[in-house]
Structure formats: structure tokens, C-alpha cells
């Protein structure tokens, strides 16, 4: 039997909805586990991505830590896949891109009703937010994109099984979706 492919997954500026959709492949997960094993992923709780064949990233880049994790994935993964609207376009978090970051933080933590004694979080442990939210391909090279918010379990299954079979992944009508 040939060696199993190693897959890492993570969510950056995302909602883990794409991961939930990944779980929607349901019992096919067992068939997938015949072919692959998981490195860093919410299922394994491994904290850093090691050498992998495939990296799946949901969510865009909204803070400094996202950039570090993305670069670690790019360094370690032979094939890097952006999954979902946020990873591909910035998505919902990028809706703040036409606003000034300072005024966003002021609005959310200081001037909203009920925040008379609020302050903008400044714990040194917190990663600094970026001025703008970016899709992944603006920071590192991305090999493939699976669009959708989230892409359906069927789309993820089709894409991964095509890829694992050595074919160019194709989605086609019904599986390719931006919403």
C-alpha cells in the first residue's frame, strides 16, 4: 500500500463554516481516511503544520498571526488550497476594508452604547490587526481555490478526490458556487 497523503487544515479570518462543510462529507470521511492522514487540523489539535502534501485554508488574512500561519502552511504544504469566500475574496471580514481601522475599533469598543468604560484591547498576547483584510493569494501563492460560503460537502469531496486521483479538479454546474 502506498503511503497516505498528509493533509493540514486551518481557519484564519474565517468562521470554521468551511470546516463544518468539510464534515458534511459525512461517512465519506471514512473513505477519505483510507487515503489521507491529518496533520494540523481541529481534529488532531496539532499546533504547527509539519511537512504535508495538501494544505486547506479557510478564512482571509486579518491580523499578523494569520500571516505567520499562512506562511508556515505555504512552507510546509506541496499543494495549498484556499477554501471558501473569505480565503478567496476576503469575504465578510473584508467588508471593513473601505473603513478606517481606527474608527472601526473606536466604534466597536468605545462609542457604542453601553461601552462608557470600554477600552480598545491592547494585551501584548493579541495579534495586531492589519489595516485591510486580504485574500490568501495576495500574500502567498495559492495552487487551487474552492469557492463557496461555504462550498458544499459534495464540492469539497469532488475537489479532493479529483486531486488525490491526480486529475485537475473540476467542480462544474451545481458544485461551483460563490454563496
Amino acid at each position: 500500500m502506498s503511503k497516505k497523503l498528509r493533509i493540514a487544515t486551518t481557519s484564519l479570518a474565517g468562521c470554521f463554516g468551511c470546516h463544518m462543510s468539510f464534515l458534511d462529507i459525512d461517512e465519506r470521511l471514512l473513505a477519505l481516511l483510507e487515503l489521507v492522514e491529518f496533520d494540523r487540523s481541529p481534529i488532531t489539535d496539532i499546533k504547527h503544520c509539519g511537512p504535508c502534501d495538501i494544505g486547506l485554508i479557510e478564512g482571509g488574512i486579518c491580523n499578523a498571526e494569520n500571516v505567520h500561519v499562512l506562511r508556515e502552511f505555504r512552507k510546509n504544504c506541496k499543494i495549498l488550497i484556499a477554501i471558501g469566500s473569505c480565503a478567496i475574496t476576503g469575504g465578510l471580514p473584508a467588508q471593513r476594508n473601505h473603513l478606517d481601522l481606527g474608527s472601526c475599533l473606536t466604534e466597536v469598543y468605545l462609542t457604542e452604547p453601553g461601552l462608557a468604560h470600554g477600552h480598545i484591547p491592547n494585551d501584548p498576547e493579541l495579534p495586531l490587526p492589519l489595516d485591510k483584510v486580504h485574500p490568501l493569494h495576495e500574500v502567498v501563492k495559492i495552487d487551487y481555490f474552492i469557492p463557496g460560503c461555504p462550498p458544499s460537502g459534495d464540492a469539497i469531496w469532488k475537489f479532493l478526490t479529483d486531486l488525490i486521483a491526480g486529475k485537475t479538479p473540476e467542480l462544474g454546474h451545481g458544485l461551483i458556487k460563490y454563496d
Partner: peptide
């Protein structure tokens, strides 16, 4: 931003993207 657009599913630009298998905008947004 298709997920929050009322026209999603009835939009010609989106439908053309699907038909042409556009998976990413590719350019800097």
C-alpha cells in the same frame, strides 16, 4: 460579496463566473 447579495443565484455576472469555471478573481481586490 455574493453571500450577502440579494441577487445571488439570479446574477448574470455570478452565473458567467460559474459557467467559465472562475474559482478566484486572481487579481488584487
Amino acid at each position: 460579496f455574493c453571500p450577502s447579495c440579494e441577487k445571488s443565484g439570479n446574477c448574470m455576472l455570478q452565473a458567467l463566473g460559474y459557467d467559465l469555471e472562475v474559482h478566484t478573481a486572481g487579481f488584487r481586490h
